[in-house]
Design a protein around this nucleic acid. Structure first.
Lengths: 147, 147
DNA sequence: CTTTCTGCAAACGATTTGCAGCAGC
DNA sequence: GCTGCTGCAAATCGTTTGCAGAAAG
């Protein structure tokens, strides 16, 4: 795991009055190695010794410490990824056939347009935007090739 | 309910080999009257005689007939809205304190930028985009005023 | 040492499903 | 009338929680 990521994680956990444990460091490393949000079964496959309940509890602790973010796809599984300020801002490609979620870089032109829209909406709706999600839903290359 | 909406719903149900029942018409009317995606409890409050299981089954039937769409927020409840080609294209404001989801019109500038980004991504990723979701997550006016 | 984390197993709760009777067509 | 919808109650399954022992600080 990269040293500065590790340092940021330790700092945020301490800031949230949470301890730094092997399980938590392993979770961060697993999410850091993946280029997409992971489901709990996928995470457990990478660390079979970890109990499901501990995985959920630690992901919650990491979420509250702003290290991890929970994202929803189109299926019944929750997915987890590192907080955006620990990675790069990105969006998601979601396959509505197999449920797979993949990261895509955010094109700068799109980001500018979103930021402008956010300003307008905050002014007109009294809504304070914390972050935005842009998801493209459709068929992934693998599912498209199957039929 | 508007006549052309009703006609479209009947046509789509028939096209999917589904029957047109009072429950299904009522569900469409409830969703049509709301200006936001609704949770199952909210739907049942509008039609207390409807059994939960029937509500879920009918929403699934309507979803398969392309009349209804399921959307996810930040909480544990699924939400349902009319298919976009039966209403207007819009995005969602999602409150991460109370979970409320509200519709917002899609600013044209934003839509153009999204369409352009979709083209680039389809070309580079072999991913076929069916539709996009732009969600703004933050604090709604009511929750902001509470504290 | 004290507090918090861990694993196990049991509980929870939104959603799904089996079944007998009723309604669309 | 046949087929598929309806309500009820039970099952399903991802996720959460209680508890006693281990580990972080």
């Amino acid at each position: 795991m990269l040293t500065d990521l590790r340092a940021a994680v330790i700092q945020r956990l301490h800031g949230a009055n949470q301890r730094v444990t092997r399980n938590r460091e392993a979770l961060v490393e697993i999410l850091s190695d993946a280029s997409r949000p992971m489901t709990l079964p996928e995470i457990l496959k990478e660390r079979p010794a970890l109990a499901q309940s501990s995985a959920y509890r630690n992901l919650l602790a990491l979420e509250q410490a702003n290290v991890v973010r929970r994202v929803g796809g189109v299926d019944e599984f929750a997915r987890f990824e590192l907080a955006e300020d620990l990675t790069e801002h990105h969006h998601h490609l979601i396959c509505d056939r197999c449920g797979a979620v993949e990261d895509v870089d955010a094109p700068p032109g799109l980001e500018n347009a979103v930021d402008k829209a956010v300003e307008e909406i905050e002014a007109s709706h009294g809504f304070l935007v914390r972050h935005h999600r842009v998801d493209l839903v459709g068929t992934c290359a693998r599912c498209a090739s199957i039929k």
